[in-house]
Design a protein around this nucleic acid. Structure first.
Lengths: 327, 327
DNA sequence: ATCAAAGTTGTGAGCGCTAACAATTGCATC
DNA sequence: GATGCAATTGTTAGCGCTCACAACTTTGAT
């Protein structure tokens, strides 16, 4: 910076002012400094800047299952929005979700001196842990909508689930089962709620609930059972991967989809359109979700203190695994 | 740090020595200092440390298509290995791959002062760009094996492709087509090479090559054409997603898999086992790949200067989409 | 007891930057 | 031309840490 100042014939402080867009710099001085900067290829030292400003221009993203469809796309959105806003994005992926690993990862970020944290750990227990540890920086949690203390952004999964079930109801189905995710995932819980709510509103007793684990393997296993007992005429599956397993189980056992049983998935992964048959599912925009998180976080960093929640609306995509109930 | 020193009754420098595991600190002093640290909940300031050491303890990961199966898992491996080694991981995801966006992202990392960079951009042009810009920090590129100037780690995809084709050859197939990825991806190119090599070694003339774009949609489109012309008895597809599309096209047109045409995929995504029928494919360990990258990078950071390449070996997973050629 | 060598601890400087304040300049007003 | 005020620029200190070196303490051989 001293070098730049010398070349431009000003003091180092003026260079600093140009770099920080301070208003009180004359146009010609600013130009001279900018020329000197490009001439020398000068780049400001982040560490020194951080030391004095106490800002690192870094946002930490803490998540589990980061390679899954949802989280990886959320990360993409977060990364994009953060970089556009001039922030760096640091990632900590949890192998295992326990209070300790969460605390570790938060400590990791505090050591790094991040300005804010985005958490995408879809277990409600996470929020308890986060409330317990006092984090000195703004924190936004994906899925924590409705929490008094935590800002959060989420896809309205309950609504998505209702969309799916209402579609099946309109087709005349009455016995609508649900193959859910693990009940200790907030997403799974919200989808279960939406399913139940839609059934209640239609005046139906609540149908068969099977708890799955998100995997295609589990979908296959449970699909075989359903194929055997035929307890439902329609199945709302909590994600596309399990739906894939279900479709295969039905295919193998001669259950016709959608003639015998209708199936709806959740997520709308690009592959779902090429399942056999193409899957009716609920689309959710994870990138948008990530961007919302950063917007919330930046707002907090700019002095906003309200505990807000941003909600992304899902959308039903009708393909070929759903059909009117055959009489 | 001054506070810790006061509580422990030593100088700030002794605290620093304890923190950095310097040998010349007596056991009891070290203990006193450590007690003071825990008592005060002291955490060393990374910015100040970076300022003087000129190390940020941060590794930048630069990649495109970061939400895809391969890259996201590679990131997971990188992140894990880096955090285990006490490094932070900063991510830059490219929306679009051009020399400019690559340079931007590298500049972004240089601004941040990262200690090293891992690049997972699967286009060979990337390496040219990287060679052009002189980066002042060690850089490891996924897929750059065999390059004189760039360290890299890669899955031996040529070998994987050969495994797939040899399996088909053993089953008696002679007309083995290949639905490849875009030819300007190194992975796609390596798989094409492996396919050709295996055919050559078997004394066969090179078969039908169709260039795809990795998507299920493209697999479906090309699958329909193949179903119509029946130019091949076996198809080696460059990834599982396209294979999904192919399977659906065949299913729709009444082509029996594997009775009429055998299909082999590539990647072994967890879902592939639940395709209809379950997909024979080539497994590659992306997390391992990511870990190797970090190992290479840390080696360079410790003073190693050799331009090495680490290779991860893929593995053929035989399921139900391949069968002996019917006569 | 004496000394050197090793082990241990302390002191001062400075990494590159920004914040606060001080000094200078330009410009309108009287 | 003198005066005051705002706009612009410069000066100094210090963020929290590590490095180089200085100073002190112990140890063991003489």
């Amino acid at each position: 910076m001293e070098d730049v100042a010398r070349v431009a014939g000003v003091s180092h402080q003026t260079v600093s002012r140009v770099l920080n867009n301070h208003p009180n710099v004359s146009a010609k001085t600013r130009e001279r400094v900018e020329d000197a900067i490009t001439e020398l290829g000068y780049r400001r030292n982040t560490a020194a800047r951080s030391l004095v400003t106490r800002r690192s221009q870094t946002i930490g993203v803490l998540g589990s299952e980061m390679a899954q469809y949802g989280p990886s796309h959320t990360l993409l959105g977060v990364q994009q929005a953060a970089r556009d806003a001039g922030y760096f994005v640091s990632v900590a992926a949890l192998r295992e979700v326990t209070p300790e690993t969460i605390k570790d990862a938060v400590a990791h970020f505090m050591d790094q001196g991040v300005d804010g944290i985005v958490v995408t750990v879809p277990h409600p227990g996470t929020f308890d842990v986060l409330r317990d540890i006092t984090v000195q920086v703004p924190l936004v949690a994906v899925g924590s909508v409705g929490d008094e203390h935590l800002s959060g952004a989420t896809v309205d999964q309950r609504q998505g689930a209702k969309l799916a079930v209402e579609h099946l109801l309109e087709l005349g189905h009455q016995r609508i089962g649900h193959l859910s995710g693990p009940a200790d995932w907030i997403d799974a819980a919200a989808r279960i709620d939406g399913w139940q709510e839609a059934l209640n509103e239609a005046g139906l007793e609540v149908g068969t609930l099977i708890e799955g684990d998100w995997s295609a393997e589990c979908g296959y296993r449970e699909g075989l059972k359903i194929a055997a007992d035929r307890s439902v005429t329609a199945l709302f599956v909590a994600n596309d991967q399990m739906a894939l397993g279900v479709l295969r189980a039905f295919n193998e056992t001669g259950v016709q989809v959608p003639a015998d049983i209708s199936v709806v998935g959740f997520d709308d992964q690009p592959e779902s359109a090429y399942f056999i048959p193409p899957l009716t599912t609920v689309d959710q925009d994870f990138e948008e979700l990530g961007q919302r998180c950063i917007r919330l976080l930046l707002d907090r960093l700019d002095g906003g203190t309200t505990v807000e929640a941003a909600t992304v609306t899902p959308r039903l995509v009708i393909r070929s695994t759903t059909a009117p109930l055959a009489h």
